[in-house]
Write a protein that binds this DNA or RNA. Structure first.
Length: 301
DNA sequence: AACGCACTCAACCGCCTCGTC
DNA sequence: GGACGAGGCGGTTGAGTGCGT
């Protein structure tokens, strides 16, 4: 389009707003309402561009803005909505009265995203992060062609469509599963399409690991865990979903109904809420480098 | 007390969409 | 149908702040 930025004209102020500017903007909007942001600053006596005024109003001055920490319910709702909508912050904000898209976006990036990563959840797909698995150790092992894995593959395929536990419906908290109000037609179609797809080998592998680990969770606490930190080893076998909620939050909606819905994989990768400083202080890259060596697990099994 | 580092969040930037002419 | 303008959105930045050493 080649449209020039609205703020590059000389004389327009940028940066933090002063209380006087806030007052001018509020006074003007109270008297005249908002709209026509291009001309508003001039009419209000502000040396700001319209865009800056709109942002200041919608993100800070609006009277219906709720301030303060996000509640657990809000946090759950954000995760739920994000799993369906992605980075549609304004759409998510529309479902959370009093919260702005900017606020939610910031909260996601500074808090929720890190919590999910810390617990082995991909914040984009909301699935367990397969890139955390050292799959090469599995595919080069005898277990790849083992009777157990072959039996598992044929058994899961015989279940018909959508046998894998890593779909959105299964992975999300049960309280999040009634998403009709939030899901667009397009998304519903997409979900239906996904449901009919055969799982990828990697997904089948994760399901396989779940079924191996779940009945033997107590055996896994002492596994050789190449690349895992001590705290991760000690947490293997704990049975929490989206582990960052920690114990005592079992009724928070995270969990599911079917036997396939126990995301033991996430429990394997989960971090206790009181994660050690070692983990909290490590960089994100370092945490993401923690690989999960499947061969160690399968051999033990 | 001083410094460095990590984190938060208000604000900006650039692009996109939609309405109008 | 294309050009243009306004508003909206998501990504990114950087000043301020808190905390540990």
């Amino acid at each position: 389009m080649g449209r020039s930025p609205c703020c590059d004209k000389n004389g327009l102020k940028k940066g933090p707003w002063t209380p006087e500017e806030d007052q001018k903007l509020m006074d003007y909007i109270q008297k005249n309402g908002y709209g026509n942001w291009r001309t508003l600053p001039k009419n209000a006596g502000l040396q700001r561009c319209g865009k800056s005024c709109r942002l200041r109003w919608t993100n800070y001055l609006r009277p219906d803005i709720k301030r303060g920490k996000f509640s657990l319910e809000e946090e759950e709702a954000i995760i739920q909505l994000h799993s369906v909508l992605g980075n549609k912050w304004s759409t998510i904000a529309a479902r959370l009265p009093g919260r702005t898209d900017n606020e939610i976006k910031n909260y996601w990036n500074t808090s929720i995203r890190k919590k999910l990563l810390r617990n082995g959840i991909d914040p984009v797909t909301h699935n367990p992060r397969l890139d955390l698995l050292d799959l090469s150790t599995f595919f080069t092992s005898n277990l790849y062609n083992s009777p157990q894995f072959m039996n598992f593959l044929s058994a899961s395929r015989s279940l018909g469509p959508n046998p894998n536990p890593l779909t959105t419906d299964n992975f999300l908290p049960s309280t999040y599963q009634n998403l009709d109000n939030f899901v667009s037609t397009e998304d519903r179609i997409s979900n239906l399409d996904n449901a009919s797809l055969q799982p990828s080998p990697a997904q089948e592998l994760v399901q396989f690991s779940n079924e191996l680990i779940e009945p033997n969770a107590d055996q896994f606490t002492s596994f050789s865990t190449t690349g895992l930190n001590e705290w991760q080893c000690s947490e293997m076998g704990s049975n929490v979903n989206y582990g960052y909620y920690g114990s005592g939050q079992e009724n928070s909606g995270f969990g599911s109904n079917s036997s396939h819905n126990n995301m033991s994989y996430t429990s394997v990768m989960s971090t206790p809420q009181s994660a050690s400083p070692l983990n909290l202080n490590s960089t994100e890259d370092e945490r993401e480098m923690n690989m999960f060596n499947f061969q160690d697990v399968f051999i033990r099994y």
